[in-house]
Nucleic acid binder design. Structure first.
Lengths: 141, 141
DNA sequence: ACTATACTTGACCATTTTAGTCAGGTATGT
DNA sequence: ACATACCTGACTAAAATGGTCAAGTATAGT
């Protein structure tokens, strides 16, 4: 199962972006400085966010990134999915197509991880960038 | 975040154990053969399960392991906890005690992982070995 | 046209974790 | 005594993580 700092950085960066993109696009350099995340690493992350139509890029001086949707329409599940933070667990060996570990039948945990994935996604589908913004409105980021 | 095959193996092995410990203790060798899990690896896993009072060991010929509780009283959260499959996510850098990444205030994701952990645990606290046994009663393991 | 800014891409790498293996032990029933 | 089976710790190949580094391309402002 993967849920690491790449996903955390993506969320932090997008919240930062959502707070500052009122007028102008926000550069990764600014986000890097404010959030304390390596610029080179941010570029990797935003490349994926762009491919998944979560952000849009504007090149050149005064360029940067802007959100493609309203913060309320960007759920955390979209963000995690974009940066490959899949809540996908270690699968059974798929040597035979119907069984696990070379057995004829499914193992007892075969469906368990699927249920878990559904359960976790239901958590992240409810949470949007907007929610995180509200929670931190009084705080300085 | 960690949730890997160690936890999956532990669950598979314990379900196997629960099915066969009616009269005699079950040897790891049998579990290893039935479930297709390395014996050496199983020994590591059961060492932890024993430390956490989930199983009891009986040495010598005809020895093996038995459950310390009824399958219905062994929740998956207990099992995962025993084998260090903590649903613990990547923490913020704790350089300063109150802030994240050296900032003065908490980052926006600071409480998010805690909420997630609670959410996942609620899933595993409901599931017991008994539940898994029922779901697979008709199947051959 | 030049230049600084900022996005874009791909290769590379040190460290840590994972998923085991290996080599010895110790206890006990027959 | 001896086979079985638990017990323990050291070791390791491969993968994932969390980045860095280098070399671009596009654009706004002067």
């Amino acid at each position: 199962m993967k849920l690491t700092s790449k996903g955390r950085y993506a969320v932090m960066a997008l919240v930062d972006l959502a707070r500052f993109d009122n007028i102008n696009p926000v550069s990764l350099r600014d986000i890097s400085l404010r959030q304390g995340i390596s610029l080179d690493y941010l570029e990797q992350i935003f490349s994926k966010l762009k491919k998944n139509q979560i952000v849009q890029s504007i090149r050149g001086t005064q360029g940067g990134y802007i959100l493609t949707k309203k913060p309320n329409d960007i759920k955390l599940t979209n963000i995690f999915h974009a940066v490959d933070e899949t809540v996908k667990t270690v699968q059974c060996k798929k040597e035979s197509k119907k069984g696990c570990n070379g057995k004829a039948t499914k193992c007892v945990t075969h469906n368990l991880w699927d249920e878990l994935e559904t359960h976790i996604n239901s958590f992240f589908e409810k949470k949007s960038l907007e929610d995180l913004l509200k929670n931190n409105k009084d705080q300085r980021i």
